[in-house]
Amino acid sequence: MSSSPPAGPRVGLFVTCLVDLFRPSVGFAAVKLMEDAGCTVEVPAAQTCCGQPAFNSGDRKDAREIAEQVIRAFEPYDYVVAPSGSCAGMLKRHYPELFQDDPQAHERAENFAGKVHELVSFLTDVLNVTSVDAAFRGSVTYHDSCSGLRELGVKDQPRKLLKTVDGLEIKEMRDPDVCCGFGGTFCVKYPDISNKIVSEKTNTIRETGAGTLLAGDLGCLMNMAGKLKREGSAIEVRHVAEVLAGMTDAPAIGEKGKG
């Protein structure tokens, strides 16, 4: 007799290209958080990126083809979850928009979008997780990434869970809802402006005196970490999922491995 565990919802993890390439530990933290909450997590191999670079560059055709590929790969799951408000926003808000002129494809995209969630809000709002079993020594400040905040309403959810992390103290920054200047290809197309915006951001981060910066989007995190490191700051930068999962042994973003 096989000892199959109670099934729980079947979740397809949309890893996101940045987590896949730069920081797999965020993906594993996401898996742990959802498995702890009773989900069966699978990772379809037929995924690369959500297509946002094409969509935001005005290349609708490629964006549509990538969207079709993602929808096909994730249709079998009860939920589709991404450790990023930006990618989840793309899947949930913009995929349907891409198929507006094709009623059938549009309906399919709408049904798909209905199952898509950003990781932390999925834990709190869908799985009703109210606390996590993790410890973290030190103070953190949390940046609200734009898409998660304004497209998906992610704001209180991460703070609620962070407050249940043993030993963790939250020190809010001024204007946590102001853009960090990443903006996808914006940061390399308009580097001077992006630099000005991220410099304002790192000022507000440093002012808090927090030892660690957290956010829910790796693009923003790499931008802010890259700037903080260039400025010589010792503030560590991590994805919020790493802290919530208690998986902070990997070096922080942009830091060298210890030992």
């Binding site: 730069f22 797999p24 390399v188």
Partner: peptide
């Protein structure tokens, strides 16, 4: 465009998909 003003965090190594 990136490294003019900020460092680029290095990837951890193997991709998530590989692991």
């Amino acid at each position: 465009g990136w490294t003019k003003y900020r460092d680029l965090p290095a990837p951890e190594g193997k991709t998530f998909q590989q692991q």
